[in-house]
Amino acid sequence: MSLLRVSNLSVVFTGRGRPPLVALDDVSLTVAAGETLALVGESGSGKSTLALAIAGLLDTAASVRGQIDVAGHGIVGAAPTALQHLRRGGIAMVFQDPMSALNPVHRIGDQIAETMPGSRAERRAAASRLLHVVGLPDAERLLEAWPHELSGGMRQRVALAIALGQEPRLLIADEPTTALDVTIQAQILRLLADLQRDLGLTLLLVTHDLGVVAELADRVAVLYAGRLVEVAAVDALFSTPQHPYTQGLLAARPPFGPDAPMLPRLTEIPGGLPSLSPPPPGCRFAERCARVSQRCREDMPELRASSAGLVACHHPGATP
């Protein structure tokens, strides 16, 4: 049974004096309970927008069409009070930059306990427990600490503690390790994996790090310029990527393992994202694609079943 279902979601940012920007275009997606779905794509492709849309956190400048269902509750157009319901036992979110995700003028303990139910003492005890859960010892002292007194890794753990405090079923983690040192990244990822397993969380993991994907994800969704271009099980995606963009991403991945050179191999896909206001009519990857045909420029490919999963390409298949 799917915990999260996104259907035909479009998000357009409209701002004064700027042309409307189509950040998400007709995105459909499901995530089963207990599953870990990785959402990948280069910066600016709309990952955060999708994450925020699901969490019901997009600001008023965004006009949203389509449906989002979390555990049977509609998110799009929901009243604030209805969303409020989902904040406990529903959706929780962890953000990319732990430096700015904590309120600098509130103490750690207060931030964790802020929306918890119960008496002051109960909430304090719960907060203290949560700090243990996310691997922070000396909780009693930490509860009194200020965010700026903590390192990045500690702050991300605190952010996780806050999220877990909501006892969520769906945890959205938007690039939770991007801003951290490599060694810390590994710790946080392990923690995420452990929590997901121990608590039976459904995890939507936003990342552009394919190494992370390989380690944690069950399935992968690839987003490009506001559209899903490929969705597949993690093994299938790594072994037989169908979309030229996915293939490019995999080729650009720095090699793993002890033999890896100090500097990553930079075989990045030439070019950049197309303008999204308005987006080009045909395939959005067309300008950067080696297999581009006239059809690609005129006719937008839809997501279709492929050998490994779903792909949106007129010329799918293995690398030639």
């Binding site: 995700a101 904590l102 802020e114 405090g165």
Partner: peptide, 12 residues
């Protein structure tokens, strides 16, 4: 700022 989103996310 993320801490404002975070506050909203946790149901403040």
């Amino acid at each position: 700022a993320d801490f404002v989103r975070m506050a909203r996310a946790k149901g403040v």
